[in-house]
Amino acid sequence: MDLTELQARARAVRARYADVERAAYGRSWTTEELMLGFLGDVGDLAKLVQGKAGVRPRADLDEALAHELADCLWSVLSLADAYGVDLEAAFTSTMDGLDAHLAARQAEGS
């Protein structure tokens, strides 16, 4: 699946969540609530990373880590969609900037 397909899948799942939220709460989550959910997922991911370091072991660690990384990616895709961010263009631009910065740092050290 490429990024466009991932974005479409994330959008479809977000729309289904919005339907469930409207039925349960009378409205769908705001972008702020999506962000808070993402923060919770990042906290869960941090615990799993500790598990990989031997601090918080659990039997299903690899499966849980993969799931939480996917949850975090879904949140990023959903937030980008909510704010109209072209994530592919933003990622490419950011990586280009980081590459240029690192090349300059390496040139300084030579």
Rank of each mutant, 00 (worst) to 15 (best):
T4F: 11
T4S: 15
E5G: 10
E5C: 06
E5T: 14
L6G: 10
Q7M: 14
Q7D: 13
Q7F: 10
Q7Y: 10
Q7T: 15
A8E: 13
R9P: 05
A10P: 05
A10I: 06
R11W: 05
R11G: 04
A12S: 11
A12R: 11
V13Y: 07
V13W: 04
V13E: 10
R16T: 08
R16H: 08
R16M: 10
Y17M: 14
Y17Q: 14
Y17S: 14
A18E: 12
D19L: 12
D19E: 15
D19M: 09
V20P: 14
E21A: 08
R22K: 07
R22D: 07
R22M: 08
R22W: 04
A23Q: 07
A23T: 04
A23D: 10
A23I: 02
Y25P: 03
Y25Q: 05
G26L: 02
R27D: 07
S28G: 12
S28M: 09
S28T: 11
S28N: 08
W29R: 13
T31V: 13
T31R: 00
E32G: 13
E32H: 10
E32M: 12
E33Q: 04
L34M: 12
L34I: 14
M35G: 09
M35R: 09
M35Y: 11
M35V: 11
L36Y: 07
L36V: 09
L36D: 15
G37T: 00
G37I: 00
G37K: 00
F38D: 10
F38Q: 12
F38G: 10
L39N: 09
G40N: 05
G40W: 00
D41C: 08
D41L: 03
D41H: 07
V42E: 02
V42T: 03
V42R: 01
G43V: 00
G43F: 00
D44I: 00
D44A: 02
L45F: 12
L45C: 13
L45W: 11
A46F: 03
V49S: 02
Q50I: 04
K52A: 15
G54F: 05
G54D: 11
G54K: 07
V55I: 14
R56P: 00
P57N: 08
R58G: 06
R58L: 08
R58A: 07
A59L: 15
D60T: 04
D60A: 03
D60L: 01
L61A: 04
D62F: 02
D62G: 07
D62H: 03
E63F: 05
A64E: 03
A64S: 04
A64T: 00
A64Q: 02
A66F: 14
H67Q: 15
E68C: 12
E68Q: 13
A70G: 08
A70C: 08
D71N: 10
C72E: 06
C72Y: 01
L73K: 09
W74L: 09
W74V: 03
V76W: 02
L77Y: 01
S78T: 12
S78E: 11
L79M: 11
L79T: 05
L79W: 05
A80P: 03
A80V: 03
